[in-house]
Design a protein around this nucleic acid. Sequence first.
DNA 1: CTGAAAGCGCTTACAG
DNA 2: CTGAAAGCGCTTACAG
Lengths: 333, 333
Amino acid sequence: MKKVTMMDVAKEANVSKSTVSQYINKRYDYMSVETKKRIKEAIEKLGYQPNYIAKSLKQKKTSTIGVIVANILHSFSTQVIRAVEDYCHEHDFHVIVCNADDDPEKEKKYVEMLQAKQVDGLIVFPTGGNVELFQQMVEQNFPLVFVDRRIEGLDVPSILLDNKKAITLAVEHLLERNYKRIGIITPSLIRKITPRIERIQGYKDALEKHGLELNEQYIKSVDVPLMKDTVKEMLELPEPPDALLAGNDLALMEVLKLVKEEGLEVPSKLAIVGVDDVSFASLFNPSLTTIAQPAFEMGTDAAERLLNRIKGSPVEHSCVTYYEPVLRKRQSS
Amino acid sequence: MKKVTMMDVAKEANVSKSTVSQYINKRYDYMSVETKKRIKEAIEKLGYQPNYIAKSLKQKKTSTIGVIVANILHSFSTQVIRAVEDYCHEHDFHVIVCNADDDPEKEKKYVEMLQAKQVDGLIVFPTGGNVELFQQMVEQNFPLVFVDRRIEGLDVPSILLDNKKAITLAVEHLLERNYKRIGIITPSLIRKITPRIERIQGYKDALEKHGLELNEQYIKSVDVPLMKDTVKEMLELPEPPDALLAGNDLALMEVLKLVKEEGLEVPSKLAIVGVDDVSFASLFNPSLTTIAQPAFEMGTDAAERLLNRIKGSPVEHSCVTYYEPVLRKRQSS
DNA sequence: CTGAAAGCGCTTACAG
DNA sequence: CTGAAAGCGCTTACAG
C-alpha cells in the first residue's frame, strides 16, 4: 500500500506538481475550471492526502504548538489545556501536551524535544528551574507564553490569577462570618513558585489590613504527602484555627481527607475555603466554598496570544495579565 | 537568528554532512576519535539541534502517535491519556491528544489531520460513527488500537473493561446488602456504544441470574442534561428503587447533584454505586462505593501494543482484551 | 494559465 | 574511515 503523493496526482491529472500544489492551497487565481476539475477528480480517485511533514519542512512552520504544564494533576492545568486545545483546533493548530511533573529536568527535556519537532511556539507553566533556557529562547525570539507562574526578570507574556486578591477575598469572607483564627496550607515554597508565594503574601497582607496578628503556626507550606499531618498538628494546637484556607485543589483534597478521618464538623468545628473550583465543590456535604480561577478564559487568552505572536504580531513586552478570582460562597464556611 | 543546520556543523568540524549524521545517530562503527571530538565541539559551539521534521520526512516515520478520545470529560479518558503519555515519553514517542466530543464528524476530521501529520499510529476511543473510515485504515494496515469501545466487525485490537462483570459485581454487592429494587442510569444508547450496552446487558443478566424481575422503569439511558429529571421520576414511582447504579462518572455526578438538591439520605433512602472511581469517592459523605477500572494499566497496555505494532510486531487479529473491574466498597451502599 | 527547477534539512546506500 | 549524490514530498519564485 504505497502512499499516494502529489506526483501521482499530477500524473493522473496530466498537470505538473506545481499546479496540484496551487490547487491544494487554494491559489486559484489563474487556474482554469477544466484543470481544477481534473485535479479534483484525480485527488478523489487516488484518495490523496497531503503530507504535512513535507509542507512543514519547506515552509519552516508546523502549525503545532507545545504545552508544558508543571503538574497535570491540578484541575487548573487540565482546564487550561482544554481551552488551549479548543482554541487551537479552531484555528487549525495542533497541540502537543507534556507534563513536567514538577521536575525541571523533565521540563528541559520536553522543551528540547518540542523544539526539535519544530513547534511554532510554547505555552508553559514553568517549574521555576531552567531560567537560562527560557532566557535564551526569549533572546532567539521564540514565541513563548507563561501561564500560572512567571519568572522574575524574564520578559515573557504571563497569564496569572490575581493571587493576592484571591486570598484577600477568602480572608474577608471568613472575617465577615466571624471566623477569627484563619490558617493556610499550601504546597512547599522552596522552588519560589509564584502562586504559592503570592497566596501566602496575600494572606499576610489581608490579616494585617484587618488589624489581625499573624500566627506563624497557622501558616504552613509543605508538599502533599506531609499535608495531612501538618494540618493535624495545626488543629491540635492549644488554640487551633477555626477556619482553614487550602492553597490549591490538591491541598483541599488533603484537608478533606483529614476532615473525614477525624470526623470534623464543617464548618462548625472548622470552616474551609479552597482555591480552585474542584468538580465536586457543589455536590459535597457540606458544599465547598471556593475561589475559582477563570481557567477557561486564561487558557483561551494564552492560546490567542501565542498564535497571534506566531502569525507575526509584535512581541508584547513585560506583559503580565492578572485575572480576577471569583468567590463562590457555599456551605463550608 | 538563523537556525543552525547540519551543514553548518559539518563546515565547522570540517567533515561532510553524512559524517555529522552518522555521529548524531550514534553510528560510530568506523568513526575516528578525532572526528567525533571535532563534531562534538562544533555542535556545542553552534548550539545545534537536529530538525526532526526533516528526519521524519526522510525516514517516513515521526515517532508520534495520536490519541482521539470520544469525550475528554470522563475521568477514565484522562487517566488513560496520562498512562499513554507516560509510556510514550519513556519510549521517545510524542503524543497528540484530540477530543472528539462525542461527535463522529470531529472524530473524522482528527483522524485525517493526524494522518496528514503522518502519525505512526492511533489510539482511539471510537465514537461509533466512521466505521468505513476505520475499515479502510485496517485494510491499509495502519497501526490502530481501540480503547473502551470496540466496533463490531472491525479487526482492531481493543482494550475494554469487562463491563458485564463490573455490573454483576455491583448488583451482587447490593443484593448482599439486602437492596431489592435496583435501578440503573446510563447515558443514551442510540449510538450503540459498547460499555453502555454491555453495562445494561450485564444488569439484566445479573438480575435474572438471581431470579429477580426486570422492571423497565428502573432502567434508563438518557444523556447528561436529562439525567437528573429522569432519576427524579424514577424516585417518584409508587415503588421507587432503593439502590441506584450510575453507569459512569458523569452519571454519578448527576445523581449526586439530585441527592443534594432533594436532601436524600444515602444509603438509607437510596444506596448508590458508581462505575469509574472518581477522585473524591473516598472523601465524600458518605464515601462512595465504586467499580473502578484499571485505567492506568489499560492505557499502558494500549500504548505498548501500538508501539510494538509500529516497531514491526505482527498484526494481532481479533484481539479483544477485557480488564477486570474492581469493587471498592465504601459507605454509599 | 502552467511547468521546470531549486531547495527545505535530513538519511542512506554506495564508492573510494 | 569519510564524502558525494540522490531523494523524502512538498512550496515557491520565476519563466514562458
